[in-house]
Design a binder for these strands. Structure first.
Lengths: 76, 76
DNA sequence: AGATATTTTTCCCTTACGGTAAAATTGTGT
DNA sequence: ACACAATTTTACCGTAAGGGAAAAATATCT
């Protein structure tokens, strides 16, 4: 598998959704439990993992941080 | 000065907002013109640069990409 | 089949977004 | 400092959509 140390360019919501699902599976956590951990609804987790583009920024950030994914910005 | 090639950890909406404002100033563009370029309202740009946390993810992504900021994700 | 997990749907409330215009802030020149 | 211009922020409103909860519909296992 791709090691967790590699950088992934985020082009859209789908990119981050896939990473989150993969991480969650690693931890062997259900969407429901993970939603509880993140203080969001289960529907949000489902939509996030499926790449819904209009989710709120801070909620996405909260989930990524809790599951162990850091976001970085880099100017071109 | 910190070169634009450096990676900045995004902990919240404020972090990305500051970068966007800095970039926009470099280009010497008004919020109004930049909003037109990004196909978003001028109010969105203002709120984004000031770190409003609940903005929609894809809109934030669209703006960052148009102004020359790439987002990366990295597992811990 | 049965149990578990995930996705989707429905109902309801809240809120983001854009447009416009006014208020506030920042910047510039004299 | 002062006046003036330019830019940014805020307020109001209508529309559209997000989000939570829970149930229903699919999917995925053993």
């Amino acid at each position: 598998m791709t090691p967790s140390s590699e950088m992934t360019l985020i082009k859209n919501a789908t990119d981050i959704g896939k990473m989150i699902r993969a991480k969650r599976k690693e931890i062997e956590m259900t969407q429901a439990d993970f939603a509880g951990l993140c203080n969001v609804g289960i529907r949000f987790i489902s939509e996030l993992e499926n790449g819904k583009p209009t989710l709120e920024f801070d909620r996405v950030l909260r989930v990524t941080q809790l599951i162990g994914i850091d976001l970085f910005a880099k100017g071109r």
